[in-house]
Computed example of a mutant assay.
Amino acid sequence: MTAKPVKTRITEMLGIEKPIIQAAMGWIARSHLSSAVSNAGGMGIIETSSGELDAVREEILKMRDLTDKPFGVNVAQAFVRDPNIVDFIINQGIKFVTTSAGDPMKYTSMLKEAGLTVFHVVPSLQGALRAIEAGVDGLIVEGGEGGGFKNPKDVASMVLIPLVCEHVNVPVVAAGGITDGRTMAAAFALGAEGVLMGTRILSSAESPVHQNWKDAIVNAEATDTVFLNRAGPGPALRALRTERTTRLETEGSPNIFGEFADTQAVYFGGDLEAGIALTGQVAGRIRDIKPVAQLFEETIAEYHATIARLAG
């Protein structure tokens, strides 16, 4: 049985069936996974943070063979190597872009002048107001419990999402700790109109990462991630707890990017000690590996059940 739709400004603006956006994970968020998200009614996102734009171009072409549903591209500004990244995206015929890891003033006006819809990822109220000033169409508000690169002054979603929603009028997508219908309902109660899933989709059946990483997520406790590099230099980040990251948690590193070492061995070879496996705290609630379509259907059904229970 198909769960009844959840219609918000996010679904209407992006032309999607379910207000769920997939995180743009470097090397991982490519056509196989992202098309599964789009075909399941969410918004699949193709990454560019790998810097491999020739490969990204091919992944966008594959997306159009694999889905006729909307999808977008992420620009992680801190990792942009090509100064013509905006032209690259426009030339691929992309209509939706998420920008992150940088100043929203840099690309927003150029993207919007080309007719694209732009959401910016923010970790703070200050960042949200800056993005509004830049003219974004929406915000992805990311709490500190999420995986990946973070603001060193992290704020939990329970505080950050309503804080931002109190100060902006654009639609907000909640990120950080979202894994099911209950957390989606909680995010909506805080003022969001959509959710972004990272770790939950990372551990899905269609995710291309090695089974060792998925198994580590399924077996993780809520305390099995670490927040690294709070004092810098470079960005802070949240990752899976391993011997390597536990050492980094206590000793720090003068070069956090160097600690990633062999990313391909971690992501696709399954050697979780070869680098850093970016993972959110919500790994502590994930206990199985499911196809994206099943995951989304169950999320929407549980969302409705949660709202009904609260109303009753």
Rank of each mutant, 00 (worst) to 15 (best):
A236M: 04
L202S: 02
I178A: 01
L272I: 12
S253E: 13
T263E: 12
L202T: 09
G270W: 04
G269Y: 01
G147N: 04
A186C: 13
T183P: 08
V173I: 15
R182Q: 11
G177F: 01
R182I: 08
A239C: 07
T223G: 09
T246D: 13
A192F: 10
L272G: 08
D271A: 05
M184K: 13
L272T: 02
I161S: 00
T245W: 10
I161C: 12
V155M: 03
A175K: 00
L190K: 08
P162Q: 10
L196C: 14
F268E: 10
I201V: 15
A185M: 03
I256M: 11
L202I: 08
I201T: 07
R182V: 04
A222P: 02
V170D: 04
E273P: 07
A186N: 03
E259T: 13
D224H: 04
F227E: 07
L190V: 06
V168N: 05
R238Q: 01
L163M: 13
L202P: 02
V226D: 06
P162G: 14
W213M: 12
P208D: 07
E251C: 04
T250Y: 15
G269R: 01
Q264L: 14
L163T: 15
D180S: 01
D262V: 01
L228F: 14
P254E: 15
G258S: 00
A175C: 01
A192H: 02
G177W: 00
I217V: 14
A189M: 09
H210M: 06
S204K: 00
K214H: 10
T199K: 03
A265F: 11
R230Q: 13
A231V: 13
G176E: 03
S203W: 07
A192M: 07
A174G: 03
F260R: 07
E243S: 14
P254R: 03
F268K: 11
N219T: 09
Y267C: 08
T246N: 13
G191M: 09
H210S: 07
M158D: 10
E249F: 14
S253N: 06
P254N: 05
D262K: 12
D154E: 15
